[in-house]
Amino acid sequence: MKEGLKLTEIPREESLSKKDFLAKYVKPQKPVVIEKLIGDWPAYEKWSLDYMKQMAGEKVVPLFDDRPISSKYKFNEPHERMKMGDYIELLKKGPTSYRVFLYHLLKEVPALQKDFSYPNIGLRLLKQIPMLFFGGEGSKVFMHYDIDYANILHFHFHGKKQCILFPPSETKYLYKVPHALIAREDIDFMNPDYEKFPALKKAQGLITELKHGETLYMPEGYWHQMTYLTAGFSMSLRATPRNLKNLSKAVYNVFFMRHFDNYMRSWKGQKWIDYKNEQAVKRTNRKNKITQ
């Protein structure tokens, strides 16, 4: 049998006090699943695909799929657009690669804001940008870390979702693409090709399966790949980095890195994408003293 990645289960807590959450997870920057953090939210009972269709069916949403990144699209530029109602019907029919990613649906449909509250758990959550993410059965997000190095509370609704995480310390093994926030897109993290990507053997990550109403805390700069085991959706609330070094990285990413990458894509085209993918392998193998 082919050897898989070294993945351990993310710790789980039924509930957590603010003091324990900060001491056990935020301060040491360790992820955790909190099973009953939002049991008192109206969203816990109400939020489903049908409810979202009822509330936002006429809204046009940006869609992303799993096609390889190319010079045709800018950073986080959608591949398609569709009415939310039509998209949800697509999700209900069966597997699809189309996802809604980083969509501020709560701004578009203010009534949804009555369905949740901001947990008093010790994080200074940004109340302006709650984001929703939708996906069809089998769809997945590339392994990446977030541009703003936020501390994230990720709440899942309707179905099941697999989450693979790696701490920033494992970046040196993950074939990070330079001038980007992703690992090589052709890595299958559930069935890794160690001949092509030998450094992955050293990577130590975490895994969990989120169910309806569960909350995943992801610390600053954590790599994550999400796979929708069933059609469903999630919401993220964010808090700014507590670590000054990570805050400076976030500023660099937002105000320089993504604009530089978009410029190079428009100038060099696919050659720039190919160059970055080649460098991801060369630099990772060099750091780990691997010769091929």
Rank of each mutant, 00 (worst) to 15 (best):
M1E: 09
E3M: 12
E3H: 06
G4T: 14
G4V: 12
T8H: 10
E9P: 04
E9W: 09
I10S: 11
K19T: 11
F21A: 03
Y25T: 05
V26K: 01
P28Y: 01
K36M: 01
L37W: 03
G39P: 00
A43Y: 08
Y44C: 01
W47R: 03
S48L: 01
M52S: 04
K53T: 04
M55H: 06
A56K: 10
E58H: 13
K59E: 11
V60E: 14
P62Y: 09
P62A: 07
L63R: 11
D65Q: 08
D65G: 10
D65V: 07
D66Y: 10
D66F: 07
Y73I: 12
K74D: 15
K74S: 15
F75R: 05
F75L: 07
K83N: 12
E89Y: 01
L91Y: 05
K93I: 08
Y98C: 01
L102V: 08
K107C: 00
E108N: 08
L112G: 06
D115H: 05
P119H: 01
P119S: 02
N120M: 00
L123N: 00
R124S: 11
L125D: 00
P130S: 03
M131H: 03
F133L: 06
G135V: 02
G135A: 05
G136R: 08
V141W: 03
Y145W: 12
D146G: 13
I147P: 01
N151Q: 14
F157W: 13
G159I: 09
K161M: 12
C163R: 01
I164Q: 10
L165F: 14
P168N: 08
T171S: 13
L174R: 05
Y175P: 00
K176V: 08
V177E: 13
P178L: 08
A180G: 12
D186W: 03
D186R: 02
N191D: 14
Y194L: 04
K196R: 12
L200H: 03
G205P: 04
G205N: 08
L206A: 07
E209S: 04
E209W: 00
E209A: 02
L210Q: 04
G213D: 07
G213K: 08
E214W: 02
Y217A: 09
M218N: 02
P219S: 07
P219Q: 06
T227D: 02
G232A: 02
M235A: 06
L237C: 04
P241D: 06
P241C: 07
L247K: 14
L247H: 07
L247G: 09
S248E: 13
K249W: 10
A250I: 10
Y252A: 12
F256H: 14
M257E: 13
N262T: 09
R265Q: 15
I273N: 09
I273P: 11
K276L: 15
N277P: 01
N277E: 15
V281F: 04
R283F: 10
R286V: 04
K287Y: 11
